[in-house]
Design a protein around this nucleic acid. Structure first.
Length: 535
DNA sequence: ATCGTTCGCCAC
DNA sequence: AAACGTGGCGAACGAT
């Protein structure tokens, strides 16, 4: 047990029944559990717990945030490394990242890289105290404290989502696959019927044997029938008149479904009615989550029909519309943009005031400003934005200039961009501009990720209150998270409570991350049996 | 055989 | 039209 200042508030307890001890402490004092790394400790713990912890402090994730903030990006961040830096010992490298099956649980302690003979409890307490001290030294300590709490809460939610899984109907998936590809091939390695037929038709149209998966074979084959193309990318093929092009486009579409999300995929990643990707918290420099396995960042829209709620359950699907431009409006304090962002459809409002009602141009222009686009069509739109929304444009332009000059930028809560991998002197102008586009986008994308993280942490707490508070299967569960979208799987009688919790979480995140702002962060919520119906 | 890179597509 | 940011991943392909 640690006091507010991070020092030990009592002697260490030794417990024989961990689940009972966690449940008892959660009920009595709602502690913030401090541990070396959620991803290594919590997944194994989850199955044994009756009550899920409300809060934690993940030393490894926080170390990462602090090192970047202190412009020491990239130093080892495991507990052992932080401890060694504190004590002036040789700093061990981090173990390579890997999945949970990468190392047996038995050796989990070794992954902290603590020097032999070090008492882990002493190291945890000391590193935690040091991190508290460093948080207080941050540019905005309160924001940094919030970021560390949100990142740690995200780590709890990530492990729980992998544990609970996204409901995935094998029957619905089969129906989709069979409709698109034909019956499942029985022999190993054989193509589904429709793919084989398409491959044959492509060969016929080109008049020779080609592997439709090989651009190197396709380009000369197309040339032989008089079609000169620079690549076999789909946007190139769409402009080609030759019948082989349409067949190849169809082949590519179906082949991708088969190889990336077909029957073999399901056996590996969604074998028992649940899709369980592994989320990598802080896996993207911008603070977005990455995933390992199963391609969870890219479930094709055409397969969403396979995500089906259990009997007497519903999916509450909520997605934050136009999140990034709203973040830009809130961060920059630009009056005009904030007025547009106070409406439900930001782009429409923007179009009304600055683009003669042309919503598409308003959207293109604003996205171009946030991504650093400069080419043709968008150029005049940027000029309009500069004139009408000078404060917003100054924010993104200043972030770009900082990056071009080799500097670092920070998100709203203080997540800090990595330094460029090369010294400014060694960068070409093209490199510098590319890095400027990265830092320009970083401030927006990273701040949007913070809003999403805060929203999810708030929702997780509210959902716990709706359930029995325990770790049984009952009650609403977060089951999916993707950048600006969440899915809650809930018993149908709790749908209304979940919908309210979602709306309250969005508003709480707005207040926590951006304080007083007229900018709205609406969540569009659809309650459905099947993900495909959430549109 | 195994590894790393490139192409190309999917998602936000 | 493809010089606009962040990712994951599978097949082909070239290097070892």
């Amino acid at each position: 047990m640690l006091g507010e200042d991070g020092t030990a508030a009592g002697p260490a307890d030794s417990v024989s029944d961990l689940a009972a001890a966690v449940a008892e402490r959660e009920a009595r004092q709602a502690p913030r559990w401090v541990w070396a790394a959620t991803e290594e400790i919590y997944p194994g713990l989850l199955a044994r717990l009756t009550v899920r912890p409300a809060r934690c402090h993940d030393l490894k994730l926080v170390e990462s945030l602090l090192l970047a903030h202190e412009e020491r990006y990239g130093l080892p961040r495991a507990l052992g490394a932080a401890w060694a830096r504190l004590r002036g010992l040789p700093v061990p490298d981090d173990p390579p990242d890997g999945g949970p099956d990468d190392q047996p649980v038995l050796f989990a302690a070794d992954r902290q890289r603590l020097p032999a003979g070090t008492d882990p409890l002493v190291a945890v307490a000391a590193v935690h105290a040091d991190q508290q001290r460093r948080i207080a030294l941050a540019e905005h300590p309160d924001r940094m404290r919030l970021l560390c709490a949100a990142e740690s809460a995200g780590a709890l939610a990530a492990a729980e989502m992998t544990y609970d899984g996204l409901p995935w109907s094998a029957a619905a998936h089969d129906e989709l696959l069979t409709g698109m590809l034909g019956p499942r091939p029985t022999g190993g390695g054989t193509r589904p019927k429709l793919l084989g037929e398409l491959a044959g038709q492509i060969q016929e149209a080109l008049g020779r044997q080609v592997n439709p998966d090989s651009p190197a074979q396709l380009l000369p084959a197309f040339a032989r029938v008089g079609v000169q193309i620079a690549s076999t990318r789909s946007y190139v093929l769409r402009e080609v008149e030759h019948p082989a092009a349409a067949l190849l486009l169809r082949y590519k579409e179906l082949s991708r479904i088969h190889s990336a999300h077909g029957w073999a995929w399901r056996e590996q990643w969604a074998p028992a009615g649940r899709f369980r990707p592994e989320y990598v918290v802080g896996g993207v420099v911008s603070g977005r989550w990455a995933t390992r396995g199963g391609g969870a960042l890219q479930i094709p829209r055409s397969l969403r029909a396979a995500v089906v709620a259990d009997p007497e359950h519903r999916l509450v699907v909520a997605d934050a519309g136009q999140l990034e431009p709203r973040v830009l409006a809130a961060m920059s304090g630009d009056d005009g943009l904030a007025r547009a962002a106070a409406e439900g459809d930001l782009y429409a409002a923007l179009a009304r005031t600055a683009f003669d009602g042309d919503r598409q141009r308003a959207k293109l222009g604003l996205l171009g400003a946030m991504y650093g686009q400069t080419s043709g069509e968008v150029r005049p739109l940027l000029d309009v934005l500069h004139r009408r929304f000078p404060d917003a444009m100054r924010l993104v332009e200043s972030a770009a200039r900082t990056g071009e000059a080799g500097g670092v930028v920070r998100s709203r809560l203080g997540r800090t961009s990595p330094p460029p991998s090369r010294d400014r002197q060694d960068m070409t102008d093209g490199d510098a501009r590319a890095w400027g586009r990265f830092t320009r986008n970083f401030v927006i994308q990273a701040s949007a990720a913070e809003w999403a993280l805060a929203m999810m942490a708030s929702l997780r707490r509210r959902l716990t209150a709706l359930g029995d508070g325990g770790n049984s299967g009952a009650g609403p569960r977060l089951v999916f998270f993707l950048h600006d979208e969440i899915i809650v799987h809930t018993p149908e009688e709790q749908v209304q409570a979940v919908e309210s919790a979602v709306a309250e979480s969005a508003d709480e995140a707005r207040c926590l991350v951006f304080g007083r702002t007229p900018v709205l962060f609406p969540l569009e919520t659809h309650t459905v049996r099947c993900y495909a119906d959430a549109k």
